[in-house]
Design a protein around this nucleic acid. Structure first.
Lengths: 210, 210
DNA sequence: CGCACGCTTGATGCTGCTCAATTTGTGTGG
DNA sequence: CCACACAAATTGAGCAGCATCAAGCGTGCG
């Protein structure tokens, strides 16, 4: 652990910074300590969102372990503090420290599972359902409150839901009949049970702890 | 390694055997030594294919490492030989043997990456394009030959491409104008370059080695 | 020979994308 | 503080992709 920190550098990035580009070779393991970053891929003309990361999360671990180019790009969606750990150091430690290797394996296992969950969600649900489930998941993270604020613009949200800006708009409007109310960037959940009735969340897709 | 093999048992399964069901707790690490198995998930009424495994592949490693329920089910698509290694043994070795932990980490990293690739393919391509790229990938695996035989029924293929039986049929017919010919279960590639022109394969989605 | 199963083909409708026009929101300078 | 400009978000119309339902075809097996 001390060795990791010794070689690491802590950096602060403003919103909208591209931290890495798909296709590049891995250089640093990134650990998001504060802020918000999105993993995305530039496809043809537009972008597709792959995942949204909140502190504390690592990213591009797999590229480092596999020693292959990044599959995705990453950018900050808010002012963020990121710890950068040289890839070489990570690989060395992996070879020497069992405890570290176990942590890495566990981290990869969880990342893999969340990717499979996203895939399941895409193959089995319509875009409105995906949105409804995203709202529910987001609400659960902020447990306390019955309202949440989308922390980025709708185009970005649309790309992570897997739809377009226009349709996201329509989808939000639809959900108005299923327990939510929209006020600008704020989504107010008026009836969680109604929303759940529509979204039909499944443990093996939407529960981040399973 | 010897410890792994000591606790393991080798089993042979006929085609169509369900090896595990999503939701079940992980018991054995599975290693496919011979045959063909599909990972899938039962969604609502139908099934969605998650991945197709050929020898030698491990599966459900992530569930064991994360110690959480299977996200998917698995079944044999051909007579298969599978090595079953008790989950407990895997976890013990992970704590004791650095080399083993490194192999596990690498395996998970590759599995994760292939799941992200599948996700990218789904978000960015139409079903015909997915099919075309599947054909290309399959052809590359059997490098030598300019023809390949679909080793399972079309419904299964459709569920892995992410479409229905009916539309798979139409999609195959469409590809007839782009360098392939269909003869029952055999797909003959008459013009690989034409097919590639249509499919536009990308290294960071379709190349299994990247 | 005929039935069953897998596959194809056709017709129809829904979902979601695209293009275009408008409205709303936001920040800037007068 | 207002006016303006620009970006973001909504709304509408038309269209492509895909699912669904319903027949038709073909092959193999009893």
């Amino acid at each position: 652990m001390s060795r990791l920190l010794k070689g690491a550098l802590l950096q602060q990035f403003p919103v909208g910074t591209v931290l890495l580009q798909e296709g590049d070779p891995p250089d640093f393991l990134h650990v998001l300590l504060e802020g918000l970053v999105e993993i995305f891929t530039q496809q043809g003309d537009g972008e597709s969102g792959i995942s949204l990361l909140t502190p504390v999360s690592t990213f591009i671990l797999a590229a480092i372990i596999a020693d292959q180019a990044y599959l995705n790009s990453a950018r900050t969606l808010a002012k963020s503090r990121v710890l950068l750990i040289p890839a070489k150091l990570v690989r060395e430690l992996l070879d020497e420290d069992v405890a570290f290797a176990r942590v890495v394996a566990r981290e990869l296992a969880l990342a893999y599972r969340s990717s499979v969950k996203k895939l399941k969600g895409h193959m089995a649900r319509s875009s409105v359902e995906r949105l409804a489930n995203w709202v529910l998941a987001e609400a659960n993270r902020h447990a306390a409150d019955a309202s949440l604020v989308i922390p980025f613009d709708r185009g970005t949200l649309a790309s992570h839901i897997g739809t377009t800006r226009e349709n996201l708009s329509r989808s939000l409007a639809q959900l108005t009949d299923h327990g939510i109310r929209i006020r600008g960037r704020e989504i107010v959940i008026e009836s969680k049970s109604s929303l759940e009735g529509f979204a039909k969340p499944q443990k093996l897709i939407d529960d981040p702890t399973s």
